[in-house]
Amino acid sequence: MEIVVCVKPVPDAETRLRATSDGTRLDPEGVKFVLAGYDESAVEQALLLKESIAGSRVHVVAFGPAPRTEEVLRATIALGADQATWVDSGADAGAEPVRAARAIAGAIASAPHDLVLCGKQANDDESGLVPAALGELLRVPEFSCVVDLRWDSATSRFRFQRPIETGVESWSAPAPLVVGLQQAWNDPRTAKLPAILKSRKAAIGKVAAASASSESRVVAERFELPPPRTGAKLIEYKTPEDAAQQLVRILREEAKVFP
């Protein structure tokens, strides 16, 4: 099975976010970029499927600028991916999800893909648009928020579940398929030290992004941070009852959230 995983470099969860001086977008200066959280699960899911289906390959594709995109691709090689392709976004930070989907689709349309796995959304923009846009571009059905994705070799179909707002759906579908993954069977694995060292020498394929042809545009205008949370006001108390009384009073009178 040919498994394509689409990943995105996003700021590390502990990064202190800051806007650029013109206030329009996230300032990437000094930001550490890592594999997006759901993308980590997508890579894990791809590796699990590869390990359970003989003759499978995992090909990871990412759209974005240097050097962060190449670095996250290298991280997926260290985890066990067989091939990595960097779709260079040039000066564009690669932030607009539909543009990313078009660029990725351009790079993988002609490559074999029985399964295209994405994280259900990236932790930065949280749009969740890429799986569906990829499905439309590749003319393949897509399913978002997928958990428990398995390959049933007896029927040659994928089986999976989707927790949606009202419950959980179970599905079966043949390849090819685009999946926006919510959770893999396992926690994402950690790359081992020797694999990390080896991944430094791996070849990363590089292709230029196809130019966008849409007349629709998405323009970043402002990036704002809420005033920083300064840390909890700690309640000093003598007894547990004292603590409880103080907290309830604060929630009623100060925070005004008491029902």
Binding site: V98, A101, R102, E126, S127, G128, L129, V130, P131, A132, A133, L134, G135, E136, L137, E142, S144, C145, R162, I164, E165, S214, E215, S216, R217, V218
Partner: peptide, 22 residues
Amino acid sequence: TTAGRDLLGRLAVAWDAAVATG
């Protein structure tokens, strides 16, 4: 919602629209 986001990802292409979720 899950369905709404799926729809918008598709329409970004099928209707060639500028889209935003959330």
